[in-house]
Design a protein around this nucleic acid. Structure first.
Length: 586
RNA sequence: GCGCCCGUAGCUCAGCUGGAUAGAGCGCAGCCCUCCGGAGGCUGAGGUCAGAGGUUCGAAUCCUCUCGGGCGCGCCA
């Protein structure tokens, strides 16, 4: 409908140009919007206001001319000039009602579009270090990232969801060492646990499992383990130096092969846990991409070679630097350290080169807000690799500050003090958790009150929408109990009996769904869909309270049932897209 | 100090990329069918859109500055 009106206006502009009222140089930006107020009709255009200056004309007079040049269309029964120069369009109810037929015919397909057809897009999200279970802080990225991916798919993109596994590097070594020390405790050794080690209970559990399976195979004499080490922080030393020494000691005493085993068990256990967690949260990845693989198969070297060939690398102070400041970064970055090891950033350059090689038209990275400083250097790398910068989209998700009632909850993976995503899901369920996370704009800082989220009550907005769905189902059940049969065809033929204000309102809301979906997808803003679903639910609840659907008059009854059937379909489509269930009774 | 995000009702947040009288939920004060599910609906109170300038027919929205909050500025990942 919107497109039709835009087309009408375009024709009017052509006519005016032909008549010389508008100069040929004028390029109109035709914007048609749905009105907020029914008094302003169904659609409105501000074209006259926007063109007034260019055309050097009074906006109201210009609007007048546009209106008179508009071709006739059967769906439009009235066009009005209003306010400072708005052109308001009134659509006849017959055309409006078409949407109910369309929803019924298209069913689950209703709202899907082909806006992104033929384009491959990759969405990388969560990608938390596998050094511990996912906590509620990761939940927002998981819910947001998967919603963005699902929306893009709904509007026709070919979508690949990916998790980048940081299975190399210092943090993983610290984890392995932490597990080993806990393992020694299982062997009844009294170990001084490093202040900077991973203290969570899950570390102990992994150690216990290893000990159960292998006995004392990895045990080493305690004097050798802890002898001759620099002091830890509580003893007046530096915790970073101490933990590095512990890692070195672990590697030395276990030897490369056993260390590798040990490391691998820790990684596999935690990664498996993350996989299950995300799966149960309704997140389905097509690819788990290993950082270590990039290092092992020479991708990192190849990436650096490519940068070197382009003249982007130089040596200084024994290290190799990427001249990113020439490409918009605030300073140059080290890619190979003085000790010969490549940095995390070097892996990331290789990773992005790999993404480019895989041929994605769009690369979307969903990152936590604390990574924003990292964006310019990745963009620089993309440029240096010869890629168009616009292919990369970094979506930052702001942190959720956790509260338990009034009290702020502190979280840290290292100290083991955190609320896991699993705990949250167990307490509120997947539906409420996902809904809650996606309710807000991703750039918006969010206060996440665990007490409120875990209160399984009417304060939880997801129930409101699900309840609307359940109510429709309930009405349809009641129909049987009253011994009536639904006549779909008759309902469609009698849609013109839907003349109540509430009914007209719902029809208008239903018609907006495809537009909302497309906008939410293209702008990466799933919260728009959530807000729409709440609005639709609200329209329905209001209608429900104001009118009886199961009335004696079969024609009205069938028409109303078709209307609420359409509501049911759209609620189901929208919630389904967000991976939120639609219970038929609650 | 520099950079990114944010500031809208008592609280948590929308506001369709510059449109017409700034909206929801929670909380508060009332009210609603012996009738399809009251996890619902309706009415009301509550706002200097942080503040000050600017851009224009028109600003919560764009620009500048100030104030306030969050985050980031490693040869960590």
């Amino acid at each position: 409908m919107k497109q039709k009106i835009e087309e009408l206006i375009r024709q009017a502009v052509q006519t005016l140009k032909a008549q010389g009222v508008l100069g040929p140089e004028i390029i109109p930006n035709i914007a048609v919007e749905r009105t907020r107020d029914a008094q302003h009709g169904d659609f409105a255009s501000n074209l006259a206001l926007a063109l007034a200056k260019q055309a050097k004309a009074n906006p109201r007079q210009l609007a007048e001319k546009i209106i008179s040049a508009l071709p006739w269309h059967e769906a439009v029964y009235k066009v009005e000039l209003a306010g400072p120069g708005f052109i308001n369009f009134f659509i006849n109810s017959d055309s409006q009602h078409q949407i109910i037929r369309q929803i019924h015919n298209e069913g689950r397909e209703f709202g899907l579009s082909k806006a992104g057809a033929g384009q491959k897009v990759q969405v990388e999200f969560v990608s938390a270090n596998p050094t511990g279970p996912l906590h509620v802080g990761h939940g927002r990225g998981a819910a947001y990232g998967s919603a963005v991916a699902d929306l893009l798919q709904a509007v026709g993109f070919e979508v690949q969801r990916e998790y980048y596994v940081n299975d190399a590097g210092r943090q993983m070594d610290i984890l392995a060492a932490s597990i080993w020390l806990r393992y020694l405790e299982e062997c009844r050794e009294i170990v001084h646990f490093p202040s900077n080690g991973y203290r969570g209970d899950y570390v102990r559990e992994i150690a216990r499992d290893i000990h159960k399976k292998t006995g004392n195979e990895y045990r080493r004499p305690l004097e050798v383990v802890l002898g001759d080490l620099p002091p830890d922080e509580p003893q007046g030393g530096d915790k970073e130096i101490y933990i590095d020494a512990i890692v070195e000691r672990t590697k030395a005493l276990l030897g490369p092969l056993l260390y590798r085993d040990f490391f691998q068990v820790g990684l596999d256990t935690i990664l498996e846990d993350i996989r299950i967690d995300l799966k149960e949260f309704g997140v389905d990845y097509q690819e788990w991409f290993s950082e270590r693989r990039l290092m092992d198969d020479g991708s990192v070297e190849r990436a650096l070679e490519r940068l070197r060939a382009g003249g982007h690398l130089y040596e200084q102070d024994g290290a190799t630097w990427f001249a990113s400041s020439r490409l918009g970064d605030e300073k140059d970055r080290v890619v190979v350290r003085e000790n010969g090891q490549s940095t995390y950033f070097a892996s990331d350059i290789a990773y992005h080169m790999n993404k480019l090689d895989r041929g994605f038209d769009r690369i979307i990275n969903v990152w936590g807000a604390d990574h924003h400083g990292y964006i310019p250097r990745v963009r620089a790398a993309m440029q240096a690799l010869g890629a168009e910068e616009s292919r990369l989209n970094v979506l930052l998700v702001q942190f959720a500050t956790l509260y338990r009632g009034e009290e702020k909850v502190q979280m840290s993976t290292r100290s083991g003090e955190f609320v896991t995503l699993r705990q949250l899901r167990n307490e509120v369920g997947k539906d409420a958790a996902r809904f809650f996370y996606v309710l807000r704009r991703s750039e918006q800082h969010m206060d996440f009150d665990l007490k409120l989220a875990t209160s399984k009550s009417n304060e939880n907005p997801v129930f409101y929408v699900q309840y609307a769905y359940a109510r429709v189902c309930s009405v349809l059940r009641q129909l049987d109990e009253k011994g009536w049969e639904r006549n779909l065809l008759s309902g469609m033929e009698n849609l013109d009996l839907l003349t109540e204000e509430h009914e007209i309102n719902i029809v208008g809301t239903l018609a907006r769904y495809p537009e909302i979906l497309e906008r939410a997808a293209l702008q990466y803003e799933p919260h728009q869909l959530i807000h729409y679903l709440r609005e639709l639910a609200n329209d329905f609840h209001t209608y429900y309270n104001a009118h009886q659907f199961l009335v004696e008059d079969a024609r009205i009854r069938d028409a109303r049932l078709n209307l609420i059937g359409a509501v049911k379909q759209v609620l189901s489509n929208g919630l389904g897209l967000l991976n939120i269930s639609t219970p038929e009774s609650m």
